[in-house]
């Protein structure tokens, strides 16, 4: 039996032990499924995979602040942990990786571009910052219908804040005090472009001042702090006090995607250095040290995650591809002739 050595008192923002273990589950699942994506790609079974290693803490924390069945999530492409955290299943993830017919997009989109009304998860493209305006439009609808207690959570990278569309959307949200939380997952890189070439400031949350809304900074490697920051912002939004820009500073440990090689633009030393703070083992240690989890529990949790991931992989792989004729479906409501 693992005997806890240090019992630290920490701000837990009302999170129960079970919720804390749930967050670790999401983080482990996210990492496992993304490793699975890279493996499947190396095995030649899927053409492409992307990863969010380093984003687990911010996403598990933010997802915990999302009210299922009520809030709306408008994420970007590097948000698998958020999707899992709001209820997406590993099987749905594998359908997406394998581009099967039963995938949310019918096998049309890159992995992790889910769309589910049941989950309150908007469809997105891969176009940087295009989703920010959609989140703001949805928040406008919530406000117009006076649906107090609902909010929109939208995410984006550091690079996305350079886009004009991002600026336009944030400005509009601020003018109308819309119920939307703008969560920036600042991983310091936009493919090969460092933050210093993306903007002249270090702190993205400070941009909030330019729009007349509050900005908040949070350690993106600390899931509990991220939960606290996003929850506070969501509550502010839900009670009609308007948008908040939250910046979670994290890091991208892997290459941008399987088609990228980060050795071409950043040193191994830099990555190694940041790895020392890897939020997943750090959170495991934290839960062990605070006796929220025993080492036996942890072993069980890891085994359970792996079993779920394996099962999802096996089942999804057996599922059929879309039919060639599916290419022609869902262009418009009703039938569509190619020349029309």
């Amino acid at each position: 039996m693992y005997a806890p050595r240090v019992v630290t008192h920490f701000e837990r923002f009302g999170l129960s032990d079970e919720q804390l273990r749930g967050m670790l589950h999401t983080m482990l699942m996210q990492r496992t499924l993304e490793n699975r994506g890279f493996q499947l790609n190396r095995q030649g079974k899927i053409p492409f995979a992307s990863a969010s290693e380093g984003h687990e803490a911010v996403q598990a924390g933010a997802a915990m602040a999302f009210e299922r069945g009520r809030d709306i999530l408008v994420p970007y492409y590097r948000d698998l942990g958020l999707d899992l955290g709001i209820g997406l299943t590993p099987y749905e993830v594998l359908l997406s990786l394998f581009a099967r017919a039963a995938d949310h997009s019918g096998g049309r989109q890159f992995p992790h571009h889910y769309a589910s009304k049941k989950l309150g998860r908007f469809t997105i493209s891969s176009i940087i910052a295009a989703q920010t305006a959609h989140a703001v439009g949805a928040a406008y609808a919530i406000k117009l219908r006076e649906e107090r207690g609902r909010a929109v959570l939208t995410t984006f990278g550091d690079g996305a804040t350079s886009e004009g569309e991002w600026h336009e959307a944030v400005n509009f949200a601020a003018i109308h005090k819309l119920p939307v939380v703008l969560l920036c997952e600042n991983n310091e890189w936009a493919i090969s472009t460092p933050q210093s070439k993306q903007m002249a400031v270090r702190d993205i949350y400070k941009k909030a001042a330019g729009y007349g809304i509050p900005g908040a900074l949070v350690d993106g490697f600390d899931p509990i702090a991220c939960y606290g920051a996003v929850r506070a912002a969501m509550q502010r939004a839900r009670s009609g006090d308007g948008p908040t820009l939250v910046e979670a500073k994290c890091y991208r440990f892997l290459s941008h995607t399987t088609d990228d090689d980060d050795r071409t633009y950043r040193t191994r030393e830099e990555v190694e250095e940041r790895r020392k703070d890897d939020p997943v083992p750090k959170f495991e240690r934290f839960l062990l040290e605070n006796a929220i989890l025993s080492s036996a529990d942890l072993e069980d949790l890891r085994a359970q995650v792996l079993a779920e991931a394996n099962d999802a992989t096996d089942r999804a792989e057996l599922m059929p591809y879309p039919l060639p004729s599916d290419l022609y479906a869902q262009v418009h409501a009703g039938p569509w002739e190619p020349w029309q």
Binding site: A133, V136, G137, A138, E165, A169, F172
Partner: peptide, 18 residues
């Protein structure tokens, strides 16, 4: 709206989806 055509359409897209 502000003079911001991309978001006039983009916000409308989000409204329509909602």
């Amino acid at each position: 709206t502000p003079i911001a055509e991309a978001s006039i359409v983009g916000i409308a897209v989000g409204m329509a989806m909602e």
